[in-house]
């Protein structure tokens, strides 16, 4: 989609000083940095080429050279300096720095971040705007994060004692960390697991102990991939959070009165039974039959605890 005149103006005013500081940059690189298609970047450069100071002779126009797809500014006129940062740009950076702090950086980096925060806040002027956003409760802290950072940096393996999400059993595992990510405020570690012989996700708050290991972990040749199966469920219409949190397993969704009929594609049915149990409302599994029966039996056992059966 092509940009509006205001968006183009904004990009053009930022483009000139950027090229001044990065001469002979390729059009493709510029396009990527300014998040526009290459054709749009060419158009932007054509527009800029037509602009200048009153008089508009060749001496007053912005002069750009685009030889062999590489761009340099020969004369930027009075657009050689970058524009000052807008309020939202400063806030984006300040809150971004706070994101880094919340993810546990080394003390030396913390000093740099705090200095930067001061510099950016000095540019903001009106600090009150910052109070329009609260991002203080983004992710829970984990004591294992520094160790995992080290293992990721060194491509080292780890030994962990882990309480399984669905099984609730404590198991000892040798894992090879792949990447860390955040979901719903929890840190997760994606890692190859020697026990499962495949990649698994480990929630950091379920790790009971962890140490760096010198063991090398190689996938077994006979490793079998998890197989997804189709599951049909009914959940209350108000349980939208189920879809929001587990969007990747929801194949279809249809409203049926005050309920939602969902088709899921999932391999870990033990996890699904627990997740559906935890929904505050009427829930049923329509198919497959064996899973529907397991869910009914689970509910009966719960009621039996309460002396209702």
């Amino acid at each position: 989609m092509s940009l509006s005149a205001i968006e183009r103006t904004s990009k053009a005013l930022d483009l000139i000083p950027y090229i001044v500081e990065h001469p002979a940059i390729s059009i493709e690189e510029l396009a990527e940095i300014f998040s526009v298609p290459s054709a749009e970047m060419v158009e932007l450069l054509n527009i800029v080429f037509m602009c200048g100071l009153p008089g508009y002779s060749h001496l007053e126009l912005i002069d750009i050279s685009t030889e062999d797809g590489f761009v340099s500014v020969i004369d930027p006129q009075n657009l050689d300096r970058p524009r000052k940062l807008t309020q939202v740009e400063i806030i984006s950076i300040v809150l971004g720095l706070q994101n880094l702090k919340s993810q546990g950086v080394k003390p030396a980096v913390m000093v740099i971040i705090e200095d930067l925060e001061k510099k950016m806040l000095a540019l903001l002027g009106d600090i009150e705007t910052l109070s329009l956003v609260d991002s203080s409760q983004t992710v829970e802290q984990s004591p294992w994060k520094p160790l995992i950072d080290d293992c990721l940096n060194e491509s080292a393996t780890m030994e962990i004692d882990y309480v399984g999400l669905a099984s609730e059993k404590l198991t000892h595992r040798l894992i090879a960390p792949k990447k860390l990510y955040i979901n719903s405020g929890h840190y997760y570690l994606r890692a190859f697991c020697s026990t499962a012989q495949s990649e698994r996700n480990f929630r950091l708050d379920r790790i009971q102990s962890a140490t760096k290991s010198s063991q090398v972990l190689l996938p077994s040749v006979s490793a079998v991939a998890d197989v997804d199966q189709e599951v049909q469920i009914l959940i209350p219409k108000g349980a939208l959070q189920f879809i929001e949190l587990h969007n990747e397993i929801v194949e279809t969704s249809q409203e049926l009165g005050d309920q939602l009929h969902l088709t899921l594609s999932i391999s870990n049915t033990a996890w699904l039974l627990r997740t559906l149990s935890a929904i505050d409302g009427s829930v049923s599994i329509l198919s497959p039959e064996n899973l529907s029966r397991d869910f009914q039996l689970l509910n009966q056992r719960v009621l039996s605890n309460y002396g209702q059966i």
Partner: peptide
């Protein structure tokens, strides 16, 4: 915030 931060970064890199 992603676009805001990227725009800020481009200006700072200039």
């Amino acid at each position: 915030f992603s676009q805001g931060a990227q725009r800020a970064l481009r200006k700072l890199e200039s």
